[in-house]
Amino acid sequence: MKNIESIIAEIKAIIAEAQQNAIRSVDHQRTLMYWHIGERIFEEEQNGKERAEYGTYLVKYLSERLQPEFGTSFSIRQINWYRQFYRVFPIASTLWTQLSWSQYKLLISLKSDDHREFYSAEAIKNNWTVRQLERQIYSHLYERLLLSNDKDSVLAVARKEAIPTSPREIIKDPMFLEFLGIKRESSYYEQDLESAIINHLQEFLLELGNGFSFVARQKRIHIAGDDFFVDIVFYNRLLKSFVIIEIKTAKLTHQDIGQLQMYVNYYDRIEKLSDENPTIGILLCADKNDAVVKFSLPENQRQIIASEYNLYLPTEKQLLDEIAKEVKSFNEKKVR
C-alpha cells in the first residue's frame, strides 16, 4: 500500500510539471506573437514614414480594427507595449522561455540594458513570480548591490558566471522590510520585529538574496553555565557558511558588535564543519554608525556586517544619492 501511495505521489508530480510546462509554453507563444506584432509595426514605421504623427495614427487605426475582434489585448496601450517590446528586445532568439509576458512588461520599462540583464537573470535563476520581480525592481535591488560592488561583479553573479566569495557581494545595505507592515512611527521592540520577520519568512528570504535557508530562531547557546539566545540563524549554500542575524531597533553600540562577535566565534569553533567557510554575522539595525562598526572590529575583517533596515521603500533619488556618496568616499580613499 505504501508503494502505491508513492506511485500516486510521483504521478501527481509528473502531472503538475506537465501542466506548468504547458502553461509556460502557451505564454511563451503569446509573448512571441506580441514580439512579431511589434516587429511588423516597427517595419511599417521604418518604411519612410517614421514620424510621430504617423506612428500615433497607425497604433490608433490598428486598435480600432483589431480590438472588436480580439479584445482588450489590442487596446492602444497594449499595442504600444508590443512596439516597445520589439524595440527593446530586437532579436527573437534572445527571448527567455522562462519569463512571462507580464515579466517582460516590467523589464521593458527599465531604463538600461544592464538593469534588464540583471533582473532577467535573477528572475530566471530564482524562479521569481511577477510580483517578486516587481518588488525587487521597486526596491532598487540592482542599485543597492552596486553600493558595495562594481557593475561587472554584480552582473557576473547574476549570470552565474561567478560564485560570491564575499558576503558583501550578496548581502544588502540597506535592507527594506516594508512587507512586514510595521509603520515607521509605531513603537515596537526587537522581539516584535523578529516575530514579523518569521511570519513573513518567504519575503525576508527574498530580501536577503540568493542561497539563504532558515535554520533556527532564538537559537540557545550554552557557554560555561550561561545561556545566550541568537535571534535568527540562516545558512547560505553559495557562501557555504552559517549566517547569524541579530536585530537591534535602537542605535547600534559597540556592545552589540561584541555580542555578535561572540556568537560568530561560537559557531566557527563549535558548529562549523571543516569544509565550510567562516560564519557571517549581520547586525540588522535601525540606526547604523559606520565609525562605531569600524573601530569595534579588526581592520579588514569580513565576517561582521552592519546592515541598516528601513520599513519603507526608497525613492530612486535616495538610492542614487547613496551611490554617489559611496563613489565619492571610494575616490577620496584612492587619493589618500
Rank of each mutant, 00 (worst) to 15 (best):
E5L: 12
I8E: 06
E10R: 14
I14W: 13
I15L: 13
R30D: 11
T31K: 07
L32T: 04
G48S: 04
G48I: 01
Y54W: 07
G55H: 09
Q67F: 06
F70V: 08
N80C: 02
V88S: 07
T94V: 14
L95K: 03
L95D: 05
S100E: 09
Y104L: 08
K105R: 15
L107N: 08
S109C: 11
L110Y: 02
D114A: 15
A121F: 09
L133P: 01
E134V: 05
Y138P: 03
S139R: 11
E143Y: 14
R144G: 03
L147A: 04
A156M: 09
T165P: 04
S166C: 08
E169W: 08
P174C: 07
F176W: 03
S187E: 09
Y189T: 10
E190Q: 10
A216N: 04
D227M: 00
F229V: 12
I245S: 11
E246L: 02
K248N: 06
Y263E: 08
E276V: 00
I280G: 01
I282T: 10
L283R: 07
D287S: 04
V292R: 00
V292K: 10
V293Y: 08
V293Q: 02
S296P: 08
L297G: 02
L313V: 03
P314Y: 04
P314C: 11
Q318R: 15
